[in-house]
Design a binder for these strands. Structure first.
Lengths: 171, 171
DNA sequence: GCCATCATGTAATTAGTTACATGATTAG
DNA sequence: CTAATCATGTAACTAATTACATGATGGC
């Protein structure tokens, strides 16, 4: 269950509301883990019940700011240091990128790969915006996650371009 | 639901048993999607019910070989060409790799990152073995998925080494 | 006053994991 | 003859998605 530990990690960096957690999963953490608000709010409730986090402030619009407790910090450290990581991943884009050139006629494959390429470039642009925003705000501990995504992006781009080139050779 | 389309994709390349599908998810497809046999067998049943695949041979040890039907091929093409891809991904290693250097004391962070590094190198070795086995067997359509993983691996390695170097600077 | 966005939640369904269970075949 | 691997399945549980639902605040 990485959701819980990703949440603990985000809250360890800085006390945050459920709403802001949701945005962080969508922005700086988008390369690593996806989670929607309907998963985040119930998990916040469970973490409170288990004493891992607590409400440290209530603000406008019924917002609640959560922070780690000592138990939460201990659990997070335990997970990072003691637990064997699982290498499993799920990446729908990768499935598509590898099936399209194998299975489709060249014309269809080109359509699919060009869309994948646009996607990769769009995502890179998004990450660069996020990085710029972070830099303007004086840097933040989330920058490295964005950086990792930005390093992966050219590899994906090159891979897709190679597949497109191989299609061209066949026609 | 990418599981279903990944399975259709694998069966489109070559008729296969449930057991062999499971191994392909563990080997050539390990960078893209994870699925265990307890998910694969029920899904095979559903795909048969829906007319997407059919049993084309029964072999030793009660094994059943499945192949795509025309409906299955159409569904696969539809998914690859017409459906907007979802960029969501879940990668536990990435979560750990980005939290460890931000949140742990340098000594703990070094332990966690060095384990991540060993993992990356071990996975690369596995992928290289798979690629060698495929090459020996005269090539296969699954080689590109392995190739994509092998291209990503050095980026991960460099990222971890940079994090370790940054830790060193602080101490 | 109203629209966009902030902000939080729940219900129903589907996807995925872990554990249990069993039998066939082959190599040594 | 027995241990490893091939091969398939189900049951109970947990995680995640999709859809529904509601209210607060600020800017125009």
């Amino acid at each position: 269950m990485s959701l819980r530990h990703a949440m603990l990690g985000l809250l360890a960096v800085q006390p945050t509301t459920g709403y802001d957690l949701t945005r962080k999963f969508d922005n700086s953490l988008s390369n690593a883990w996806h989670a929607s608000h309907s998963q985040i709010y119930p998990e916040l409730g469970r973490l409170v019940d288990e004493g891992m986090i607590e409400v440290v402030a209530e603000g406008a619009r019924n917002s609640k700011t959560y922070a780690l407790t000592d138990a939460g910090r201990a659990e997070l450290r335990r997970w990072l240091v003691d637990v064997e990581p699982s290498r499993q991943q799920r990446n729908e884009s990768a499935v598509r990128m590898f099936l399209a050139p194998r299975l489709l006629e060249p014309a269809d494959a080109r359509v699919a790969l060009e869309r994948d390429l646009r996607d990769v470039l769009a995502q890179r642009a998004t990450l660069e915006e996020i990085r710029a925003a972070i830099a303007e705000a004086g840097g933040s501990p989330f920058e490295p996650a964005v950086d990792l995504g930005l390093r992966m992006s050219p590899v994906m781009e090159e891979w897709i371009r190679d597949q497109l080139a191989a299609l061209g050779d066949e026609s």
